[in-house]
């Protein structure tokens, strides 16, 4: 202690700068440590491992006949899977050039034209559109109709009339077999 004391009293400026440097260095290292320590407390609110494991769903398409739809659940949301008829596919591609709020070609919305796969949540305010069952109203364009505020979707799930701003969302999916897909 004696020699530091003499340094401090003998050359005050040098002592000051050494002290400032130590303070700066220590607080920098301390701040880095504190920041790193905060991460686990932030990350714990992200989806847990078991939730993540359920983030992809496999669906067997083989029981679906042409012209039929089923609804699967993926990440807690309904997913519409429709095996479209030739007439529906033809209608959808024919309308590619029609004017619509969110222009998109049918080809950009499907991997195989026969299979239309979309998240079944209206892009307006989150209701679930009708049109999955044969008896449901399908709207003016023969696709889906949202009863909440009257949005009409066509056979490609594109918004054609009503308040919804966007086409029905196509989730990421891959064909893992001829008739099995993995969503997510």
């Amino acid at each position: 202690m004696t020699d530091t004391a003499s340094t401090a009293s003998g050359k005050p400026e040098e002592g000051e700068s050494r002290r400032d440097f130590l303070l700066l260095a220590t607080s920098t290292v301390g701040a880095v440590g504190a920041t790193l320590a905060v991460w686990p407390f932030v990350d714990q609110m992200n989806p847990a491992a078991d939730t993540m494991a359920l983030s992809s769903t496999e669906v067997d398409l083989s029981p679906i006949e042409e012209g039929q739809s089923i609804t699967a659940v993926w990440r807690g949301k309904p997913v519409f899977l429709r095996r479209r008829t030739a007439a529906e596919i033809e209608q959808a591609t024919k309308d590619d050039s029609a004017s619509m709020p969110d222009p998109q070609t049918d080809a950009a919305r499907v991997q195989k034209p026969e299979w239309l796969i979309m998240v079944g949540i209206c892009t307006h305010l989150g209701c679930i559109p009708l049109g999955q069952k044969a008896s449901d109203p399908k709207g003016e364009f023969g696709g889906w109709f949202c009863p909440c505020h009257g949005s009409h979707y066509d056979t490609s799930g594109r918004i054609r009339k009503g308040p919804a701003p966007k086409n029905l969302l196509v989730p990421p999916y891959t064909f893992v077999g001829d008739e099995t897909i993995r969503i997510g």
């Binding site: 530091t4 004391a5 303070l23 260095a25 220590t26 290292v29 301390g30």
Partner: peptide
């Protein structure tokens, strides 16, 4: 290891700050 380094630095800082008392 990180804490060991940080504590070492805090020791140096503590000595420095307290040195003007003696």
């Amino acid at each position: 290891l990180f804490l060991l380094v940080l504590t070492g630095m805090m020791y140096a800082l503590k000595r420095k700050i307290w040195s003007d008392l003696h």
